[in-house]
Deep mutational scan, measured.
Amino acid sequence: MAAGGDHGSPDSYRSPLASRYASPEMCFVFSDRYKFRTWRQLWLWLAEAEQTLGLPITDEQIQEMKSNLENIDFKMAAEEEKRLRHDVMAHVHTFGHCCPKAAGIIHLGATSCYVGDNTDLIILRNALDLLLPKLARVISRLADFAKERASLPTLGFTHFQPAQLTTVGKRCCLWIQDLCMDLQNLKRVRDDLRFRGVKGTTGTQASFLQLFEGDDHKVEQLDKMVTEKAGFKRAFIITGQTYTRKVDIEVLSVLASLGASVHKICTDIRLLANLKEMEEPFEKQQIGSSAMPYKRNPMRSERCCSLARHLMTLVMDPLQTASVQWFERTLDDSANRRICLAEAFLTADTILNTLQNISEGLVVYPKVIERRIRQELPFMATENIIMAMVKAGGSRQDCHEKIRVLSQQAASVVKQEGGDNDLIERIQVDAYFSPIHSQLDHLLDPSSFTGRASQQVQRFLEEEVYPLLKPYESVMKVKAELCL
């Protein structure tokens, strides 16, 4: 049975990233139509530049190519590739079939990587351009969430054990800070992308030097003109047959890092959902379990974690691919890159769409948070109580021993009897502590235990987050809708 299948058929496997999760716009960027249309555009740009620099290419040939950029006979191309065992030459023939007058000058002087690699770089750039505003929107939604809850005390956790208090907004800023680093890295790697350009079979530009009869300047002009037509500021000066596969490492490393950030955020949300302090959106008709109707599973956060793990592992592909590119190139890269580049971007696209949807509907339960604080705060307040007693004339050592005994009794009630923490009640009825009984409410005010959390939130948002989001103001209103 021949390899390949009808990918629109229910009898043929289709990647869930495309069929179930990723956005239509990201799927289109990695589609065959987008790819092969870009090949034709690159052939047109090459012909236009070659004509401008004096090669015998007519206006009629150029116009014929322009008129057929979208006229792609995919069936013919597939048949040609089956016959020739070469995808680029299959599309040269297919393009030439609908451009008979231009057929002889299509791909003039070029090698397969002229269309293959340059198209990949265009796709990487455009895919990054799709991700950047999506990530900015996630940051914006979380920034709104953090600002609104900047002063809401909550129990902090280290080692997932109760620690000092923080605020809900401050905790959210930990998430935002990681995503801001990801946004900066995505922008950097996007701006650092260079075009492969017009380089020939081993990167020496020998074929173009021959076409222009040894004119170095025209060869350099050709490279520059096509690079500018493709919208790049610069091209690699040095290439082998391909652009260095280190570029793929750079791009997928940034995406993998984004995956790590999203995994951490969504894990926190899942843990908070278990504590009943916070939940992701839950639709009115949504079913959490087929057997347990009360369940409210954090399905979206779980999906993000599941896909983020996949995204983090994909960076190993370009690392290994770059390491086995012998001399000017081997074909070890080809099949692998067809999979890992598309999957990385479709996965990143999915987790950003999902995280935006989550961040637009996060639900906080202040009463649950308050109750958990009441359970733990008495123990945390013991040092403040000791200091207040010393100020009232008591002995630190005597007070410490009193607190120690009462704390152990209260802990026994919590752990052995399943009761509430009654340390404060014990202190309130103990005559030894009568000098500070009137101060206990103040000493137990949760806001006095959150330090500068709310001020940190305000400063972080104003100095770091809002300036970073400013270039994306025009796209901030787009909502994230999930079908599944």
Rank of each mutant, 00 (worst) to 15 (best):
G5N: 15
S9Q: 05
S9V: 12
S9R: 12
L17R: 01
S19W: 02
Y21G: 10
M26C: 02
D32Y: 09
D32G: 08
F36W: 09
W39L: 14
W39G: 05
L42M: 00
W43P: 06
L46M: 10
E50Y: 02
T52F: 01
L55R: 08
T58K: 08
T58V: 03
Q61D: 02
Q61P: 14
Q63R: 10
Q63G: 11
M65L: 00
S67Y: 07
S67T: 00
F74I: 06
F74L: 13
E79I: 10
E81K: 01
D87A: 11
H93V: 04
T94Q: 03
F95G: 01
P100W: 09
G104K: 02
G104E: 02
I105D: 08
I105T: 09
S112D: 07
C113F: 11
D120T: 06
L121N: 09
I122K: 10
A127C: 09
A127N: 00
D129N: 09
L130C: 12
L135H: 06
I139Y: 10
R141T: 13
D144K: 05
D144I: 11
K147Q: 02
E148N: 11
R149D: 08
S151D: 02
G156Q: 03
F160D: 06
Q164I: 07
K170L: 03
Q184S: 12
N185S: 06
L186G: 04
V189H: 01
R190N: 02
R190I: 10
D192S: 06
F195V: 03
F195H: 03
V198C: 14
T201F: 05
T204C: 07
A206I: 13
S207W: 14
S207I: 08
F208E: 09
Q210W: 00
L211A: 00
L211P: 03
E213P: 04
G214E: 13
D215Q: 11
D216T: 11
H217F: 06
L222S: 11
L222R: 05
A230Q: 02
A230G: 05
K233D: 07
R245M: 15
V247H: 12
S253Q: 12
V254P: 00
A256I: 13
G259I: 02
A260C: 01
I265V: 08
I269S: 04
I269Y: 04
R270G: 02
L271V: 04
A273T: 02
N274T: 09
K276S: 07
Q286Y: 13
I287E: 08
S290D: 07
P293K: 11
P293L: 11
Y294F: 13
N297I: 14
S301K: 04
E302W: 02
C305K: 01
S306T: 03
L307E: 14
H310L: 12
Q320S: 02
V324M: 05
F327S: 03
R337N: 10
C340W: 07
A344D: 07
L346S: 12
T347E: 02
D349G: 10
D349A: 10
D349C: 10
T350F: 02
N353H: 08
N353C: 06
Q356A: 09
E360P: 07
Y365D: 05
V368R: 11
E370G: 13
R372E: 09
R374D: 15
F379E: 04
M380Y: 14
E383D: 10
I385A: 12
A388K: 04
K391W: 10
S395I: 01
C399K: 05
H400E: 11
V405Q: 15
Q409T: 05
A410I: 00
A411S: 01
I424H: 15
E425H: 10
R426I: 14
D430F: 06
Y432F: 12
S434K: 08
S434A: 07
I436L: 06
H437N: 12
Q439R: 05
L440A: 08
H442N: 14
L443A: 13
L443R: 02
P446K: 07
T450R: 14
T450D: 08
R452N: 06
Q455E: 12
Q456R: 07
V457D: 06
Q458L: 07
E462D: 00
E462A: 15
Y466Q: 12
P471E: 00
C483V: 11
L484C: 01
